[in-house]
């Protein structure tokens, strides 16, 4: 009897111990996240002001700013999303709603799973060889946008498929029963119902793309630049112009990389400030995605 009691006590201690171990490991992650943000804020917060956000890079750390990088990042995101979303959603719709189970579909599916595991820098190498040198598109915004769009394509496809799969078949059958064609079912019912899920996936993909550095360095995006691309809008007809697509550009993470690789600590403070701007962008994108996901889960009950 005593032995059994001792055994029970030991097992209980084991469980208690593991409980603490689990909490400790979780804390390692959370504390690192806090330390990272605290460190960035400590070194960079005082550096962020209107001047920093609206100035061009400079050889003097105090005068330098992130304007071209910030504008570059935002324009690049615009191109990336407008390429990746139509293509990714179309691919997801095909795979989920049209494709039959045959070898071609299997090849496409295995291929998408593998693409998601290809290191981002490899996309940069492909873009350098194919887009910059074969197609002579230059180191421009549109090349950067295509590169990042291909990079996030698997994320958009997978989230589209998951959102479509969550729609019960009854919806499809009801629409077919009323004589709708397949495309009418997709356009009028499936896409509207899955829009929230697709949006969540797209926003997550954007938050990854906006911090992506390696493929852009590989295609030769300059480490700093002191001009802005032409404005997409103009005062004379036709009021939009597309010159900015072929403009040279740089982005926030590359600007930060430039500053962090300099030995002068004054530039490290700039790097921290650029990092704060960048992390604010990514974390707010993530927050938006979490909110959408949460509201969807609460609102939709099939």
């Amino acid at each position: 009897m005593i032995d059994i009691q001792r055994l029970i006590n030991r097992r209980k201690r084991q469980d208690l111990f593991f409980n603490f171990l689990g909490i400790a490991c979780t804390l390692v992650g959370i504390i690192t996240l806090l330390a990272l943000m605290g460190d960035l804020a400590y070194s960079g917060l005082t550096r962020i002001d209107w001047q920093f956000l609206t100035s061009y890079p400079s050889s003097s750390a105090e005068k330098a700013g992130v304007l071209p990088a910030l504008v570059g990042s935002l324009l690049l995101m615009f191109i990336t999303v407008s390429l990746a979303v139509p293509l990714g959603v179309a691919a997801g719709v095909y795979l989920e709603e049209y494709s039959r189970k045959n070898w071609l579909t299997t090849v496409i599916e295995i291929n998408i799973a593998n693409l998601a595991g290809v290191p981002s820098i490899i996309y940069g190498l492909m873009a350098l060889s194919l887009l910059v040198y074969q197609f002579h598109l230059g180191r421009t915004l549109v090349v950067g946008g295509i590169t990042l769009a291909l990079l996030i394509l698997p994320i958009v496809i997978v989230s589209t498929r998951e959102a479509l799969r969550a729609i019960p078949n009854g919806i499809r059958e009801a629409a077919y029963a009323l004589g709708a064609t397949r495309w009418q079912v997709i356009k009028d019912h499936l896409l509207p119902y899955s829009a929230g899920g697709i949006a969540t996936g797209t926003i997550i993909a954007m938050s990854r793309a906006i911090g992506e550095t390696a493929p852009l360095i590989t295609i030769g995006v300059p480490l700093f630049i002191s001009v802005l691309p032409d404005s997409p809008f103009q005062s004379t007809a036709p009021f939009v112009n597309f010159d900015w697509l072929t403009a040279k550009f740089t982005v926030l993470p590359i600007q930060m990389f430039n500053w962090v690789s300099r030995p002068d600590p004054a530039f490290h403070r700039n790097a921290a400030a650029a990092g704060l701007v960048l992390i604010t962008l990514t974390l707010s994108l993530n927050a938006v995605a979490i909110v959408i996901r949460y509201r969807l889960r609460k609102k939709i009950k099939w």
């Binding site: 960035l40 938050s207 911090g211 930060m256």
Partner: peptide, 11 residues
């Protein structure tokens, strides 16, 4: 995993 890797490099 959402923190940009360049920020991790700085850290």
């Amino acid at each position: 995993s959402a923190v940009p890797t360049v920020v991790y490099g700085y850290f």
